[in-house]
Design a protein around this nucleic acid. Sequence first.
DNA 1: AATTTTTACATTGTTGACAAAATACTGATA
DNA 2: TATCAGTATTTTGTCAACAATGTAAAAATT
Lengths: 226, 226
Amino acid sequence: MTSISPIIKPEPLHVQAYKYIQNYLLESEFSPGERLTELGLADMLGVSRGPVREAVRLLIHDGLLVQKGVHIYVFDPTFDDVIDIYLCKEGLEPLAAKLAAQNMTQSDQGTLLDIINRTNKALAHDEKRDIVKFNTEFHDLIIQSSGNTQLIQFMNLIHAKNLYMRNNILSNYARRDNFFEEHVRIADAIVNGDGVQAESEMKQHIQNDINMIGTIFKSKQKDDSI
Amino acid sequence: MTSISPIIKPEPLHVQAYKYIQNYLLESEFSPGERLTELGLADMLGVSRGPVREAVRLLIHDGLLVQKGVHIYVFDPTFDDVIDIYLCKEGLEPLAAKLAAQNMTQSDQGTLLDIINRTNKALAHDEKRDIVKFNTEFHDLIIQSSGNTQLIQFMNLIHAKNLYMRNNILSNYARRDNFFEEHVRIADAIVNGDGVQAESEMKQHIQNDINMIGTIFKSKQKDDSI
DNA sequence: AATTTTTACATTGTTGACAAAATACTGATA
DNA sequence: TATCAGTATTTTGTCAACAATGTAAAAATT
């Protein structure tokens, strides 16, 4: 029997704490390199140290927080870290695209094309926020459609770090102009069920990202920090 | 100043608990699907529930334990899970091989060739335990030599699951005959600094693994469980 | 003034207690 | 026998207290 009960059970505090702190990090509420304390976070969320502690441990495991000695700091990625992440993306996302081409439902294919259309409109109106949002949705849908649970799990980790870097490091830089055409080609290949094509288009797409980051790096090389 | 102090500080209990429980899982001390309780593990390790709880949370995050409702069970992978893992390996390990070819030190290259030699001897004497051990060392060294910290982190997760599955599922099946020749080709490419070659050899190597698993799957398809 | 030593403080590490929830058990009722 | 209600038990969720550790500040010594 399927429940239609209106009663919703609140998630355990440690789960909520994890989500909240992760969100704070992704939304740049904390600065890279900033030091955090369990008590500070606990007071902030209005709970005891226990649940916060579990959340912090997980975030350290994810790499969003870093433990130096006994203290905990917000991950402050170097450009090498950014490149490392993108190389992992280059390894995994083409696989996701290939699997998505094989497994994506009709309904999700419609959603994919819809995202493409909305991206197009957002570009026409130069609505930056939407452009970024639809970009994320595009990649997420492909990953989810891969049907590979392990891959989805790994990409979640990459995704969190990636988003974090986008918000904290790469935010000031304009997106590549031709990313939209690449998205169109990827989507076409997926809708046509051409796994090989989808895989190589996605690979090229991410390599272009990496090249862009490389040019950012060169233009910033004078500075010590990012 | 480098410390030569004989005083060793014990690791925090939650770190030890994590390592111990992970090790139990990898060494098949627990059966797949078995239910674990925090209190049971705590008694087993002689500590309170706190540290165990943190360790369990991490292991759930890693996917080695699974939470169904409130209860915690040992991961009981299906064949689909195994394939999913190996597809991720196919995405990441060729990248590791490519980077290793670019970055591996002279000293590590020597170690790599040494592993090859010892594998050869182990094969000649049919010492299965050593064969498996050297195989693991071979892949680990390449991953470590990639110099990509993110990649290493992800491969640690894959590796734990992979080892777990090897011990629990694939243990009864003979290893492919020609894996040694493939290792030799990979090692040659790395020592020659040929990243492209190393990448494609590694990809082929893992695809062969996947094919083998596929044949195992077919021959076992009658059974419900693994 | 510089360096060590001491002291105080802040923060993490760990535990045991209690509350809440889910599960398993028992017996009553149809 | 099957089903339900109520009870007991197990297990997780959360907290607050205390211990241990490391860090920073202050005092003392050279």
